[in-house]
């Protein structure tokens, strides 16, 4: 055979009519019940169940009365739904001497989280912007020091910070705790913002400089409006991080300023009296609901911002 290629073409051509009618055409059919799909969805379902089951138990238990809980069927749905444990957890559960529930801790946590988040993000974004766009003498060294700061274990620094706060006269106050949260958020947030600003086209910054904009004008008018995703990421990191913080809350504040997490621990771990599982469950869900809410509201932006910030290092 001199030319098998052309031969095949002729044969196919002779038979073209019937071939074009019989052969595959259009979109390839999708088999929904293939082995691969069963594997994927099966794994996903099991993983989802694994994470949802504890939540289910918590919700169900928190809606039961104590007599029903004592029967021991932790997976059974409540026979008689009661919201009393929730009310008690919020308003009248006892921690030590106080019996006004988690509400005090909630408001403490709000008063800690909001200023810490706002201040740390404001400072870190300006830091990141300066490090990315205004390379000053020693900026690389400054950046390295900041990053190293992220790797130093918290425990090492607790005692020195206690002394510093005491000397400043703000040990045990909300202000002291807010300052601590702001400082400890700085390395990771600065890194986040710097990487994001580095990923923005440099020519934009140059164009703004030619247009005569200075440090603050470029930051406020050019950079900020382009940086919503990374601000959302930083906000989520800070809100959840600070809200979930236990160690600093216990160490740096007095009982009347304890954040919600510390108070939750005190309720759940109280040794006197009967263990009220339903109240404990309700209190735990209440405490966790804020980060949960933040994730639900901003999850999409979060993923986008993380991806954007991670492009360049």
């Amino acid at each position: 055979m001199a030319n098998p290629g052309s031969l095949a073409v002729t044969v196919a051509g002779a038979d073209a009519m019937s071939d074009s009618l019989a052969g595959p055409r259009g979109r390839r059919p999708q088999r929904s019940l293939s082995g691969r799909n069963i594997m994927i969805y099966g794994t996903l379902a099991i993983a989802a169940l694994y994470y949802l089951l504890p939540l289910y138990v918590m919700v169900v238990t928190s809606l039961k009365g104590m007599p029903e809980i004592r029967l021991g069927n932790i997976f059974a749905p409540p026979v008689e739904i009661t919201f009393e444990p929730w009310a008690k957890a919020w308003a009248s559960a006892c921690t030590g001497l106080n019996c006004d529930g988690l509400s005090r801790g909630f408001w403490n946590s709000v008063r800690i989280t909001i200023p810490s988040t706002v201040i740390s993000i404001a400072i870190a974004s300006i830091n990141g912007y300066a490090l990315a766009n205004w390379r000053f003498k020693g900026s690389e060294i400054f950046f390295t020091i900041l990053i190293v700061g992220a790797f130093i274990p918290y425990q090492v620094m607790i005692y020195p910070i206690v002394i510093v706060l005491r000397e400043m006269g703000i040990y045990g106050t909300l202000t002291g705790l807010i300052i601590v949260h702001t400082i400890f958020g700085m390395p990771i947030l600065t890194l986040l913002f710097r990487n994001y600003f580095v990923s923005l086209p440099e020519e934009l910054f140059k164009a703004a400089r030619i247009d005569g904009a200075g440090f603050w004008t470029i930051y406020l008018k050019i950079m900020l409006p382009m940086s919503l995703p990374i601000f959302v990421v930083a906000m989520i990191l800070q809100i959840t991080g600070i809200w979930n913080d236990f160690l600093f809350g216990v160490v740096f504040t007095r009982p009347e300023y304890y954040p919600m997490t510390v108070q939750l621990n005190n309720i759940v771990n109280s040794v006197q009296g009967v263990k009220e599982y339903n109240v404990n469950m309700a209190a735990t869900i209440l405490t966790g609901s804020v980060p949960l809410f933040v994730y639900f509201v901003s999850g999409r932006l979060f993923v986008r911002g993380i991806a954007a910030g991670a492009v360049k290092g």
Partner: peptide, 20 residues
Amino acid sequence: EEPKDRGIGMVFQSYALYPQ
């Protein structure tokens, strides 16, 4: 001098328009 005081205008390859 600062760029703005030099009496120049610049056009960039990537246009560098302010997106917002």
